[in-house]
């Protein structure tokens, strides 16, 4: 009887111990494999994000190189040809021109001058020498000054002078973002007043654009940037990702605002 009792007790203890060990082993294997898979998935995600950022960076850089090339070609080739054409045109002497010839001559001269100005403007728009030579604040002030017109749209600029004038790679992207946003405001929002403000604090540049037109809300922006014809917004988004910046659209009583926050190394 005692032997039987001992046997049952032993069977019980061994059985419970074996079952528990098996269960705990399975549990540990489960937890370990799940963690490993999760770690692998996170690493894969990080690699995909890094690759995506590299592609964006390559796209943005090649866009800048192309803009620079086109700007140079326009200025050096087309600009020079038009300039020479204008000189030749001005050298033409017509003896006693009648009224109609005089007006045609004047029209041709005006068109040529307009063409030269447009080429110059386009060249500067594609590649700002002011940005390279004088820094972001100067480039933005100059751009806003060019766009601003009393009877169409008034642009006020208040930029933090403590932002360094040495041009970093990021300044070009920041300039393009502000340029694109102001062009969009002019084209679509029909604003009459635009305010551009910047604050440089704790290695972060915060630029705020406010206007009194019909702007975008954050949800509207997120909807539009995935549309094919919203290419400008997609470019802005790509540059924002590249800069690791933050972009927010908002609407308040006074009008619409766009806040850009860029970390600066």
């Amino acid at each position: 009887m005692n032997q039987g009792s001992t046997d049952i007790r032993l069977l019980l203890v061994v059985g419970i111990a074996a079952m528990l060990m098996l269960f705990i082993s399975l549990l540990l294997i489960f937890i370990f494999t799940q963690r490993k898979k999760l770690q692998f998935q996170n690493e894969l995600q990080a690699m995909q994000n890094a690759q995506k950022n590299q592609l964006i960076e390559a796209a943005v850089r090649s866009e800048e190189i192309e803009r620079h090339r086109i700007a140079e070609e326009l200025h050096d080739e087309v600009g020079a040809i038009l300039g020479a054409s204008s000189l030749h045109f001005n050298s033409v002497r017509i003896e006693d021109p009648d009224e109609s010839n005089q007006s045609i001559y004047q029209k041709g001269k005006d068109l040529l001058d307009e063409g030269i100005n447009k080429i110059r403007g386009l060249s500067h728009s594609l590649h700002s020498n002011i940005l390279q030579e004088f820094g972001l604040n100067e480039a933005l002030s100059h751009f806003c000054g060019k766009i601003s017109h009393e009877s169409v749209v008034e642009i006020s600029v208040t930029l933090d002078p403590s932002y360094p004038t040495q041009v970093g790679q990021n300044d070009i992207s920041i300039y393009r973002i502000v340029q694109e946003l102001i062009n969009n405001i002019n084209k679509h929002a029909k604003a009459t007043k635009i305010f551009v403000r910047s604050i440089y604090l704790n290695k972060t540049l915060m630029i705020t654009l406010t206007h009194n037109g019909k702007g975008l809300t954050q949800s509207h922006f997120e909807e539009l940037r995935f549309k094919k014809d919203g290419l400008g917004l997609k470019n802005i988004q790509n540059r924002i990702i590249l800069l690791k910046a933050d972009l927010k659209f908002s609407h308040h009583a006074g009008g619409y605002a766009i806040d850009i926050s860029v970390p600066v190394d």
């Binding site: 009887m1 049952i8 007790r9 019980l12 528990l20 098996l22």
Partner: peptide, 21 residues
Amino acid sequence: GIYVTINFFIFLLYNELTIRM
């Protein structure tokens, strides 16, 4: 899992145990 792992052998042998011990 912990509950049934510990108790399977207890349940299996319980009637026998109530008789013998």
